[in-house]
């Protein structure tokens, strides 16, 4: 067999481990986007928010020495960018898609500019939970090394799923996304609801970024996000705007991202870049699969500019 000792079993284990590790940013970003889109707006700027979050988290983490402070700061930076998106979209006749693309480029540029001094140093990393301590097998232990942020993400997915259905906030948020007229007729400010939802979405997107720079891969460079913020938007469509399905979809994307490194452990190195492209191929395949020329997507909030 191969150097890893446990062979193809090890590949599966590495993919599972990769899924648990890599899925966290997908999860946070897609949960944030679900929140935003349920209120009736699309925020395409999440890639920019993700990068800003990663940079801010890393900078604050390395300057203060506390990674958790970095996570909070990353969320704050994301919320601020969300506020910017919402504030522009609140103006009459502004297209949220165009603003999102502008925000994506703006966030990216700003993160690269402000983050230049932090490319070399290392910051204090977020701790990991050793859930594989019972096993003697190093591969199992590596796979089950889990970030507390991942667990928070799972809890958040469940809480969001429940909250959208069973709380006043959830109900009003969904109404703003399904029928702005009905919301206005009942005296709610649709713009205020959407602003809050976009800010919360930005906050979660920022935290997703902090995970990248403070846990895995755990440094700050300009190629850090590799399009994960954009893929998360496709993931939301695939998950049909359901927070729990976002969790499964994130794991799927995480697993796909881990395919290349996992195969490398058993010595398959020839198509490394090909396997690394797996998440992008998966994105395309899922979008083709979930699209139809004949009908609009089930579950899509009616006020979304893409479903009108």
């Amino acid at each position: 067999m191969t150097a890893s000792g446990i062979g193809w079993y090890g590949v599966a284990l590495a993919i599972i481990g990769g899924a648990l590790r890599v899925s966290t940013p997908y999860l946070f970003v897609s949960l944030g986007e679900v929140l935003t889109e349920k209120s009736g707006r699309v925020n395409l700027g999440l890639e920019g928010i993700l990068l800003m979050g990663a940079m801010t988290g890393f900078a604050v983490g390395s300057l203060s020495g506390s990674p958790w402070l970095g996570v909070l700061a990353a969320g704050g930076a994301g919320a601020l960018l969300g506020l910017l998106h919402a504030g522009i979209c609140n103006l009459p006749r502004v297209n949220d898609i165009a603003v999102g693309i502008a925000l994506f480029l703006f966030g990216m540029g700003l993160a690269f500019y402000l983050g230049k001094p932090f490319i070399a140093p290392r910051a204090a990393m977020l701790p990991a939970l050793q859930l594989g301590a019972w096993s003697n097998e190093p591969a199992v232990r590596a796979a089950l090394e889990i970030s507390p942020l991942f667990l928070i993400g799972i809890a958040l997915a469940i809480a969001l799923r429940w909250g959208l259905a069973n709380t006043r906030w959830g109900l009003v948020l969904r109404m703003a996304g399904e029928s702005a007229d009905a919301a206005r007729a009942l005296g709610y400010s649709v713009n205020a609801i959407r602003t809050l939802a976009t800010m919360c979405g930005g906050f979660l997107g920022g935290i997703g970024g902090a995970f990248l720079s403070l846990y895995y891969p755990g440094n700050w460079n300009e190629g850090l996000s590799s399009g994960q913020g954009l893929m998360a938007i496709a993931l939301v469509i695939f998950a049909r705007w359901n927070p729990l399905r976002c969790l499964w979809a994130s794991l799927l994307f995480g697993g796909a991202s881990a395919l290349g490194p996992a195969l490398q452990t058993v010595g398959v190195t020839s198509g490394y870049y090909l396997y690394s492209a797996a998440p992008y191929v998966l994105t395309l395949a899922l979008l083709v699969y979930s699209s139809s020329t004949r009908h609009t997507l089930a579950g899509a909030p009616s006020e979304l500019s893409i479903s009108r």
Binding site: L171, M175, S179, A182, A185, L186, P301, S302
Partner: peptide, 14 residues
């Protein structure tokens, strides 16, 4: 003025 993707109960409570 109903929200068509929601249930009867949700529309009444809203």
């Amino acid at each position: 003025t109903l929200v068509s993707q929601m249930s009867v109960a949700e529309n009444l409570v809203l």
